[in-house]
Design a binder for these strands. Structure first.
Length: 259
DNA sequence: ATGACCACATCTTGTGGA
């Protein structure tokens, strides 16, 4: 069972890339972020035509997450539980969770948080508090859990081409990183770093300033595995091929192979 | 090279991304 996560930066603009990736046989399940389309515009039929099921939590113009698989997708949950009454006002579509082939999968599009400090950074930290609280409750489930997606956090200096240049940025802020490391403290494993403990494993390259040809990348897309899921981890990696296609997303897929 | 992008909405310019 291979499971991948990919921030596609508009599913409408990237539909052919995503369909090709599904058809390639590289993965049995794909979690998508930044769909930038509403539920009624989600191309369920295009995936059905290649034998894939799809569930989404969309939003016009911004955000949007989905889970795709040839396997049955069941027990779908949209949005994170609320910790405070204010959380009920949150209308951003950034989380969808479902069961696929014995795994409990959460697709995450974590807020960027810039400018920092400010209300957007506050929103990021509150969203992470909600995610971490939910991640804790998921440990009680009977299933191996994978929380995968665009976390908008660079955990370590090796996850950035030039970490000092990101001083003060929400992706490299100590509070963002501390909130991310809470998942590790709960017992979740960063699959890419479990398999590749050292060296660059970038998942994002800016469109600007020749970041891709210069390999000025950052690692912000992560697959976090509960202890039960980590026991099933066989391999993990970054598939850089889609980033080199015509009109690519600025992110590329990250994947795990599970027993 | 002190440069340099992309997608969306609709407004050919502004917002958001990271």
């Amino acid at each position: 069972m291979r499971i991948a996560s990919w921030n596609v930066n508009s599913l409408k603009a990237r539909l052919d890339h995503v369909l090709d990736y599904c058809r390639s046989g590289q993965v049995d399940c794909l979690m998508l972020q930044e769909l930038k389309l509403s539920d009624e515009n989600f191309p369920h039929q295009a995936f059905a035509d290649i034998g894939w099921n799809s569930v989404c939590h969309g939003q016009k113009t911004y955000n949007g997450v989905a889970i795709l698989s040839p396997f049955e997708i069941s027990n779908v949950m949209r949005g994170l539980p609320h910790l405070t009454p204010e959380d009920a006002q949150d209308e951003q579509s950034r989380y969808i969770e479902a069961s696929v082939n014995g795994f409990r999968l959460g697709a995450i599009y974590l807020p960027n948080g810039n400018p920092c400090p400010g209300p957007k950074f506050d929103y990021k930290l509150q969203w992470m508090a909600r995610l971490n609280a939910h991640a804790k409750t998921l440990l009680d489930s009977e299933m191996p859990v994978i929380l995968a997606g665009d976390y908008n956090v660079m955990p370590q200096a090796i996850d950035c081409y030039d970490a000092p240049a990101w001083e003060g940025d929400a992706l490299w802020h100590p509070q963002s990183r501390a909130a991310f490391f809470e998942l590790s403290n709960l017992g979740y494993t960063d699959a890419i770093r479990a398999i590749h403990p050292v060296g660059a494993q970038y998942s994002y390259w800016d469109y600007q300033a020749g970041a891709w040809p210069r390999d000025n990348g950052i690692r912000i897309d992560h697959l976090m595995l509960s202890p039960e899921a980590a026991d099933k981890l066989v391999n993990a990696g970054v598939d850089k091929t889609p980033r080199g296609l015509e009109r690519p997303s600025d992110h590329t897929p990250v994947w795990v192979e599970m027993l």
